[in-house]
Design a protein around this nucleic acid. Structure first.
Length: 563
RNA sequence: GGGCGCGUGGCCUAGUCAGGAUAAGGCGGCAGCCUCCUAAGCUGUAGAUCGGGGGUUCGAAUCCCCCCGCGCCCGCCA
């Protein structure tokens, strides 16, 4: 696919440069390759070389162009190279376009060549209540990255780190001791006692000691507290999992932070950090001085009462992770920026590989930021319910003759897609404001737009039996060629999103792919086309359907066959 | 106060990391397209000094500096 074309262009350029005796600096994109409206791939390397060679970029480009060891048929994917002033324009040849259509008939061509083992940790929400619309930004970004990396060829373990030793879980247990869990969904029931407990402790500060006592006994290995905390946390996670599953999100493994306290890993981390000479006792607590690395405040490794802290436990978790994978990816909210830099610095001090951290900015409500503790949030369940309700109305308006069962099922799939696409389409480093109107809009910049294109392709394919013999060379219309080229881009998009950990790039591609298909659909009749052309167009519909399906699946969005 | 991030038509965003050939979409506005494979679609049109100011460069939305605005953080919480 596109990456093959690109590497062929690269080697053509490299040998031409060598022939001319030109040297380019090594580095990313040293050949100055860029996508261009004027060609399939362009190089502005002439500009790069101009200051060194003291000649005009156009002259340099012309010289490179002249010594390009290129004749028709000498390359498997490049048709021609054109000189346009200082630019070199590369074009794909017909054989290459044909091979894209043929490859895309199958299932093999969509998988990338990466082969690393990767751990992606995402969601890891405290088991103190349901996921809200802020949490799901973490879950959706994380799960989409898991899918992208798998598509790129990696072996991925999606991990959920369970914070069972923190204050918030002790608060939940205190709440369960004093209030009754009602029969609402597990995570929602937990949230109610958690909110009540917070209220009680705020109003009666003396109760704080009781909560502290729970933490201390749990850390000391008290069986009763352990049973209570594990039970409460598991109950909350059960509810959280239901919500995640509803959004097509699954974790491969769960890791409890208490594990790393019990097995001694936390103590070992502390010992190793002491060996750096940067850790010292202050006010009874062990603190790490990271001022040499630009951190003002010291990082507390162990409380004066001897109990551990979140960061220290997280260090132990990361040390373990580093022995299990070649890449570690953490998805964290913007509130973790500082602590994750400190974590990485501490790991570096111990010569432990650092994770790649994907930070996403906050999702706020028009009324301000969300808070589980204060009960101020829109839950993911509520969001999904509302979107599903809206989707049901829309599908009913369009397909009133279909059974309610089918309409419900389509609405559920549309809702999952709409929510996931809406969340992941914005770059992670942009703070967003939750907007009901946008969440309930199923038009162009949304998952239903892409699902719809897929459904249209399926609809055409349903009307014919087999595709049979076809000649891809007949697909020469403007929209047909554009569609083939767009399909070809799939491997490059996956590769780049997987390396840069930018899942929103895939949503842009998905939109472009669907747009291309809709144009082809609009201007190239398939079923009414003359016999031979019909077969070729059917093959392109099939290729498009496969590309749309792969893209949707990688986004975790159901590829609906009818809607 | 310090650190990090963000600022692109009325609104939401892509493009910024790796500077290049006319700033790309959506929503909303206006004007059109269902005897035609699903109109959750398609076409046309109006609308942008890319927050402001300096600088680097043949060339800056993109890199550097300053300023302004917004967000997050600066706990022996997580």
């Amino acid at each position: 696919m596109f990456l093959d074309f690109k590497s062929e262009v690269e080697s053509l350029l490299h040998s031409a440069l060598e022939k001319c005796g030109f040297k380019v600096e090594v580095g990313v994109n040293s050949l100055s390759l860029e996508s261009s409206p004027h060609s399939d791939l362009a190089s502005s390397v002439g500009f790069r070389l101009a200051p060194v060679l003291r000649r005009s970029p156009a002259l340099i480009a012309a010289e490179i162009h002249k010594s390009m060891a290129f004749s028709p048929g000498s390359a498997s994917s490049v048709d021609r190279v054109e000189l346009a002033g200082p630019y070199l324009n590369f074009f794909m040849n017909r054989d290459f376009l044909d091979s894209i259509v043929i490859q895309a008939q199958g299932t093999e061509c969509w998988k990338g060549k990466m082969s690393q083992k990767v751990i992606v940790e995402h969601t890891s929400a405290n088991p103190d209540g349901p996921l809200h619309v802020g949490h799901i930004r973490n879950s959706v970004i994380g799960d989409t990255l898991v899918r992208i990396l798998r598509k790129a060829g990696c072996t991925v373990d999606a991990q959920y780190y369970v914070n069972d030793m923190g204050r918030q879980e002790a608060m939940v247990v205190w709440g369960c001791d004093h209030y009754k869990l009602d029969d609402s969904k597990a995570d929602h029931a937990i949230a109610k006692v958690y909110i009540a407990a917070n209220k009680a402790v705020t109003e009666t500060p003396e109760l704080k000691a009781e909560v502290d006592h729970i933490i201390q006994r749990y850390e000391a290995g008290d069986q009763e507290q352990e049973a209570k905390i594990k039970c409460a946390a598991k109950y909350a996670i059960m509810g959280i999992e239901q919500t995640l599953h509803r959004m097509n999100i699954r974790h491969d493994s769960y890791h409890w932070e208490s594990t790393f306290v019990r097995n001694g890993d936390v103590d070992r981390v502390i010992q190793d950090l002491q060996k750096t000479g940067l850790a010292e006792m202050e006010d009874g607590a062990l603190q790490l001085d990271l001022s040499a690395f630009g951190f003002e405040k010291k990082l507390v490794l162990r409380r004066a009462d001897g109990t551990s802290l979140y960061t220290t436990r997280d260090l132990a978790y990361h040390r373990w992770k580093s022995t299990q994978a070649e890449r570690m990816v953490d998805i964290l909210g913007a509130d973790h920026k500082l602590i994750s830099s400190q974590l990485r610095t501490a790991l570096r001090l111990m010569k432990i590989p650092e994770p790649e951290v994907v930070i996403f900015e906050f999702v706020s409500l028009p009324s301000g930021s969300m808070s589980t503790r204060r009960g101020k949030f829109i839950s993911a369940d509520e969001l999904l319910d509302e979107v599903e309700k809206q989707a049901f109305e829309e599908v009913t308006a369009r397909r009133p003759e279909e059974s309610e069962e089918l309409r419900r099922s389509i609405a559920a799939d549309v809702a999952v897609g709409a929510v996931r696409y809406d969340v992941v389409k914005v770059s992670a480093d942009k703070a967003t404001m939750f907007d009901w109107k946008a969440a309930l809009d199923f038009e162009k910049l949304s998952a239903p737009f892409i699902q719809y294109s897929h459904a249209r392709a399926c609809s055409i394919l349903r009307k014919v039996g087999e595709i049979g013999q076809f000649d891809p060379g007949l697909l020469t219309g403007e929209n047909e060629v554009a569609m083939i080229k767009k399909i070809a881009e799939f491997d490059q998009v996956i590769d780049r999103a997987g390396r840069e950990l930018k899942p929103h790039q895939l949503t842009t591609y998905a939109r472009e792919l669907a747009e291309s298909f809709n144009l082809f659909y609009r201007f190239s009749p398939v079923l009414d086309a003359p016999q031979e052309l019909k077969a070729s167009r059917l093959a392109l519909v099939n290729a498009s359907r496969n590309a749309l399906r792969e893209t949707l699946e990688t986004l975790g969005i159901p590829a609906l066959e009818t809607m």
